[in-house]
Amino acid sequence: MPTTAPTRQATVAARAVTKRFGDRTALRDVSFEAYSGELLAIIGPNGAGKTTLLSILAGIQAPTGGEVSSPGRKVGWVPQQPAIYSKLSVAENLRLFARLEKLSDPDSAVERMLDHTDLHERANEEVGRLSAGNQQRVNVAIGLLCEPTALLLDEPSASLDPRQRERLWGFIGGLAGRGTTVVYSTHNVVEVERYADRVLVLADGELLFVGTPGELGRAVGGDPRDFEAAFVRFLDLCGH
């Protein structure tokens, strides 16, 4: 479900970003731009540096070298594991983060998010009692509270069943359609093929490819319908 051609206005950009943890280099000279209304997927094997790159874009970690530009507080962040309080209810979690975001009307923001996530009926239930899928919906909703210009998601569909996944991507696609830049990491190459406008391939901290999923398939030849095989072959060709 690729969206319409993105408008060419960079909202998130990384320039020669490097990150070291002691002797280990997690990211090496990574540069790219993401545009308004674009869905940009980051894929790569385990330990490629996907989460580190998203953390740096989100402002959680500082890069060792290079720089990032993003619209500051208007970047929504959805970590891989739900960062919510299991002893609080859905509404209390949303209200807490709405207040910490210093939104002018926290209560209406909570209502809006309950509508978006369709969790009105579970609003007063403790988050710890919800299914993993519903917890992830609350997690995403908190990332959207500040109505972000750019939304960063770290493996957002990892704990969801196919129906929940479909619903999540429908929701995220709607955000992109309204001009939000969406950058997400995933291990699910089907999600890349179906939802991403462009894809970044990272391996061992190196940015190996930036382009559309179709361009990645063409780069390695073979069956253009089998994106997963193209991705694996691409990694093999690059020596990863």
């Binding site: 970590p79 960062a83 919510i84 309080y85 975001e101």
Partner: peptide, 13 residues
């Protein structure tokens, strides 16, 4: 343990 620390300290607190 609730993974909330990173979310909090990225500008909220």
């Amino acid at each position: 343990e609730e993974h909330a620390f990173a979310r909090l300290v990225r500008g909220l607190v």
